[in-house]
Amino acid sequence: MTRAEAFSEREVAMCTVAHLVENGRTYWAAGGGTPLYSVLLGQKLYAPDAQYITEDGVVAPEPLLPFEPMMTMVASRAVHHALLWGTMNSAGLHAQLGHMDYGVLNTLQVDQHGNINSTFLGEYGGSGRRFGGPGGADTIAACCWRTILITDQERRKFVKEVDFISSPGFLDGTPGARERAGLPRDTGPWRVVTPWAMYDYEDRRLRLMARVPWVTVDEILAECEWKPLIAPEVQVIEPPTEEELHLLRTELDVRGQTTDAAGSWITWDGEKYVRA
């Protein structure tokens, strides 16, 4: 593995998630962008026996890469040589039965209890801004055993309470809140990954557990409107490798729609990584 010389912040987040992918586990990826690319990256480079499921009920495909632009579900290249072709209801039911170990999703806004907003910024129905809605993320966040959330490290995205709960985290954070809302037992948020950091949960509250080498804990906290708990020892995240970036750029996100979409560019100056 070769240390990469230059990469975007979104690429960092996807590579960090790829390192979490484990053999023998199932991953339900929300939509077709960052979550799908992260799981594929992990599967292709580190965990060949990890399997993924998509919202249109495709079980364990061997996709023909690269995808056509936007065509990451239903399209023939995306669903190629799957073990099963299903439907949205079959995917939802398989998750409801407990077959999905991990859900991987991205979002607009997350709060201290891992609740996810992808519907509305501002007071609902007021003058705020509408976004796309939960899509498949609500079922993923409700029914997969563990949820990995990808988002950007921005102040307005890490808040005390999301403006609108589109997909459930630990709800009000009290023990049993999910079960009282009818959600399956022992499920819930597990990690949040941003281009700068990784978080886990302690007593159902968000906790900073790792950072990338080129930002400090203070810089991360400055980009959190609501301050998370901090682990006693904050780990350092491995930067992307050339192998990871090559796969991402040549086979997964060929047009750079996801990888170039936001954030700074990180470069190696001969001694350390610096943010442009």
């Binding site: 939802g92 709960i165 809140a177 999910r178």
Partner: peptide, 23 residues
Amino acid sequence: TRLQAGAMGIPFLPVRSFGGTDG
């Protein structure tokens, strides 16, 4: 799921998701 209930000729279906959300 709502379409599935409609396709079964029944008035509703129980689900293990959606609870607790603002949706």
